[in-house]
Amino acid sequence: MAFFEMAKTAIKTLVQRPATIRYPAESAKKTEISRGHVTIDESRCISCGSCQRTCPSQAIVVEKEAKTWQIDRLRCVVCRACVDVCPVKCLFMDTQYTAPMVTRSTETVMITYVKPVKPPEKEEGKA
């Protein structure tokens, strides 16, 4: 049996700096590899739809004809599966968390990727 076991810790914490952060005045902790939210480089996306198929929460919709990439931020579970699967590496994981929102909405990005015209001499070389 011991008494005042807590006293040492209590006094120590009293004189120490607080362990908490004065958020939002100070920014929240994050690391280089923190998973915040998914971003896309719309100039490189080839609309293959791999991210849509792999997404476990079905948050991503890619429309090939309309050339759009949509994400529902509230559905997204930030698992990073789409970033891993992307064949052209046009998806990135940003360390910043998604801002709070009051209504459910999808974010739409217009894909600006243009398929490069194949140089004709290559075809000749093959033939």
């Binding site: 362990a19 902790k29 994050k30 690391t31 590899i33 923190s34 998973r35 579970v77 930030v78 698992c79 990073r80 994981m93």
Partner: peptide, 21 residues
Amino acid sequence: RIRERVLDVLEQTTGGRVIQG
């Protein structure tokens, strides 16, 4: 408060505080 130190390590190594993935 001690737990926070552990979570920091988890976030630094996996990218997630509680859902490590």
